[in-house]
Design a protein around this nucleic acid. Structure first.
Lengths: 347, 347
DNA sequence: CTGAAAGCGCTTACAG
DNA sequence: CTGAAAGCGCTTACAG
């Protein structure tokens, strides 16, 4: 993609003035229909992108609106992505940049329509926050737009992305359960849906492998359909002593279900989650879970993006940021309940 | 406040060139310390604001970063303010504007420091989303910055603000409870904290007045301290038949507390909330509540702001946007339980 | 240490 | 219908 086609470039190619190009592109009076069409066609062909900033300068109007949210309204129990966005904003400030939040409509994503900010030269790069189709990522790559994926990655390992270390997080969490005497451990999550869930599952599996605990397929429980909608959990006939849930929300759902079946948590079985979001504190008991280090992730994402803007050749690939186990009240030690010998024979 | 002081203005006043002013203001080589100071002082005195856009144009770098969030990650159970922001963004697009989300640090709010976007001419106006101190609002007013308050208002009625109709919403909700036979109705909320809660309380009170139900001060229950932190609810010795909670979160807390005291909802008493946020669906049973029309509010806010940017003299004052009652399972009709005669005598 | 000139990419107002 | 000129506010590179 050509990077900086201007009205003048178009004008020169057509042997007209840039004033005429401006008029044509803005559908103003004073250009013959024929010439107007020619100009528009060439503009498209040359990959022309309007420069709002120049217009802004002329008009003394920035075409930006600042939306202010007081800090105290963005506390603990707010949305995960808002928290991310907030950290991104904070990091950007250090570089004298501003963040423009754009909700990418599903339709634009499917039809592969780039954000208007790109066409108007409003931004120098993008942070993609949350899994977008790989076709869309490819599109951004083709246009050579500096970008960093945050909280997900694609199968192209050369695309720079910052993700939490899902694998390691659940691996540690499962180790922790095993250290507390659990050996019947189930995993809840659709292991075919997102890469995050898959990685979390593999972390769980690795921990089992390392402790020579066989993988029990009855203990792999689906939690959502292909569209990501939560389904009713089908619990195995014999309950495990612990559940590793792929996220806090499912942990929350599971605890409610178990309670409604008259089980007591963590006495009858332990439950752990992932994310340390609002659901981990709403369940009763609150969930032991893994806290994603959103601040560090945002920091790294911004740093990388700015570097890439300065130097197009910079590349970082996939970067994993470790999370941290948050201990709450949903896990019980079961070492005294018959599994002791099994455990000790393992050590 | 002067609106458009440029480097040239400063240069002319000092009888130097604008190049020198540029160097001085950017702390670059080639200006004597003495002159540099003079220029900086005059700049401050004249209320000079740097124009990033001009710099941007020169450098071909917008100094904006687009943060993309796919639509499907901003669904139902996300934060209230993110939803607002999303609607604002969508509305702004219609006017070819972009929103820059800024978290206003509490420190800047207290020290009355304006957002940097203002000093850099990055924005044409502000949507203030969430209660900011009235001193801060006054500051914005003094600087003649176009602004609209969203989701709160100040005591200056001439400041344009868009709020949900708290008064009418709770009034309707209380009417609904009374229509269902309730006469012992408590209100939960700190009626001295925010204007929203106060208005909701007054809506409750008006409904009681209209139905000739005396206000029982034992039925006004505080839910938070001066800092807005939730406190343990002190329930009256004799439980009312219904609770009007100032927000869903408190409704959620109340239901949990009542259940832990072995009450059954809505059989033993009904509970209603306000906001229709995540807490209204997390409680068991889910809460009957009032849905705030965030989309309409954002729409009106943006429309007003754009009008005000075009014409500084436009003024709208406080605008109330009506919400909508969402019926769920936390209310029971009690007309057959002894209050029937009272009720009918009223009608 | 100081500044005249040129340019970033566009638009407006005017002349042909 | 078409375009030369000037300007939006700043900065860079060069000359004095």
């Amino acid at each position: 993609m050509k990077s900086n086609v201007t009205m003048r470039d178009i004008a020169v190619k057509l042997g007209v003035s840039s004033v005429t190009v401006s008029k044509a592109l803005n559908d103003k009076e004073g250009v013959s229909e024929e010439l107007k069409l020619k100009i528009k066609d060439l503009a498209e062909e040359m990959g022309y992108r309007f420069n709002v900033m120049a217009k802004s300068m002329k008009e003394g109007c920035s075409y930006n609106i600042g939306v202010i949210i007081p800090e105290r309204f963005t506390g603990e129990d707010q949305s995960f992505y808002l928290k991310f966005y907030q950290h991104i904003t904070k990091m950007l400030e250090r570089y004298n940049y501003y963040g423009i939040l754009q909700i990418l409509p599903t339709n634009d994503e499917e039809k592969l329509i780039l954000p208007r900010t790109y066409y108007e030269n409003k931004v120098d790069g993008f942070v993609i926050l949350g899994q977008v189709s790989s076709e869309y990522i490819d599109l951004l790559t083709e246009h050579e737009i500096p970008k960093v994926l945050l909280d997900f990655y694609t199968d192209h390992s050369e695309v720079d992305s910052i993700v939490t270390d899902n694998f390691y997080g659940v691996y540690e969490l499962t180790n922790y359960l095993i250290k507390n005497g659990h050996r019947e451990i189930a995993f809840i999550g659709n292991i075919h849906s997102t890469s995050s869930i898959q990685d979390r599952y593999l972390g769980y599996y690795k921990s089992l492998l390392e402790h020579k605990i066989p993988l029990n397929t009855n203990y792999i429980i689906n939690d959502r359909d292909e569209r990501g909608k939560y389904i009713d959990l089908e619990l195995p006939e014999q309950l495990p002593t612990a559940f590793v849930c792929n996220c806090d929300q499912v942990g929350f759902n599971l605890i409610n279900k178990l309670i409604s079946l008259n089980y007591s948590i963590p006495d009858d079985c332990s439950v752990v989650g992932f994310d340390n979001d609002i659901y981990s504190t709403l369940s009763n008991p609150p969930l032991t879970t893994v806290q994603v280090d959103t601040e560090e992730m945002a920091k790294v994402a911004v740093k990388f993006l700015i570097e890439k803007i300065k130097d197009k050749n910079k590349s970082y690939g996939r970067v994993l940021i470790k999370g941290k186990i948050i201990h709450r009240d949903s896990v019980k030690t079961v070492s005294k309940e018959g599994h002791v010998s099994d455990l000790s024979s393992q050590i």
